[in-house]
């Protein structure tokens, strides 16, 4: 079954969608979509460095994403406005990565595959990476769920309950770096943040509790992955962007009709 590239693509898409769902909810609740962008952009530098120094690709991406996440987390609230800070470091990382790749004249690299994903070329090894990485993300999110919720509601409430909100934030940063590493192959660097934000935003109109929002985000993300793949197959469009478009369509539908379904 895994020998069919469409089956592998579908499994990869659904795996990423499920792993991204609870994390995406926190991205929406904590208004950190920018952070997803920055972490993803930094991974270009990771790709470049891995090529330049013949390092294994996945750890390099993970390390660069994690470094960016930590830098952003630590620098937040230290003088510069967040969007300014990200405008500087995220795009610097992206640009430096692209420059580094260009300097490596002996390497023929299909940068498009990293920027926009290459879900149809997912190998069995990629699939293992995605599902193991996804399981790690889900484990972190499940274990830290309640503490993260309290810290998100109000840091002082967290302190009063013996929870250190800064430590919880680091768990989120770690999960984010993992998500970038596993999602690159599926939607690419430029659209990872979309895969985090759109399903969660689409779930918001349908639900009453944080947990159901995460569950619905997983469903919406999976439907988007399958729908996008199907659409890409039929219309011969790029798969990653097609998945994001499918998610956007679902978001539009739930935003329009969700309030009539849900009763507070």
């Amino acid at each position: 079954m895994l020998d069919d590239f469409m089956v592998r693509a579908a499994l990869a898409g659904v795996g990423v969608a499920i792993a991204a769902a609870p994390l995406g909810c926190f991205v929406v609740w904590r208004r950190m979509a920018y952070m997803g962008e920055a972490t993803a952009h930094a991974s270009v530098l990771g790709v470049a460095l891995s090529l330049a120094f013949s390092l294994p690709l996945l750890p390099a991406i993970l390390a660069s994403a994690l470094t960016m996440g930590l830098a952003v987390t630590l620098l937040r609230g230290k003088g510069f406005a967040m969007d300014t800070l990200l405008g500087v470091i995220a795009h610097t990382a992206l640009a430096a990565g692209l420059v580094t790749v260009a300097l490596l004249s002996d390497v023929r690299l299909d940068l498009n595959a990293f920027l926009f994903g290459d879900i149809l070329a997912v190998t069995k090894g990629d699939l293992a990476t995605i599902w193991i990485g996804g399981a790690l993300i889900l484990t972190v999110m499940t274990l830290r769920w309640s503490a993260l919720l309290v810290a998100t509601l109000n840091p002082d409430l967290a302190y009063a309950s013996g929870i250190d909100p800064k430590r919880e934030e680091l768990w989120l940063t770690l999960a984010m770096a993992l998500a970038v590493a596993v999602a690159i192959k599926v939607v690419g660097i430029l659209l990872i943040a979309a895969l985090l934000v759109i399903p969660a935003a689409g779930a918001r109109s349908l639900v009453k509790t944080p947990e159901s929002m995460a569950a619905f985000a997983a469903v919406i993300g999976s439907l988007a992955a399958l729908g996008g793949l199907g659409g890409a197959y039929l219309a011969d469009t790029p798969a990653g962007p097609s998945i994001v478009c499918a998610a956007a369509i679902i978001f539009l539908l739930t935003a329009l009709f969700g309030p009539f379904i849900r009763k507070d």
Partner: peptide, 15 residues
């Protein structure tokens, strides 16, 4: 935040 759905029951059960 309006983006965070939360019933009173769930809020009381945190953490």
């Amino acid at each position: 935040d309006a983006a965070l759905p939360m019933t009173v029951q769930r809020f009381l059960g945190l953490p």
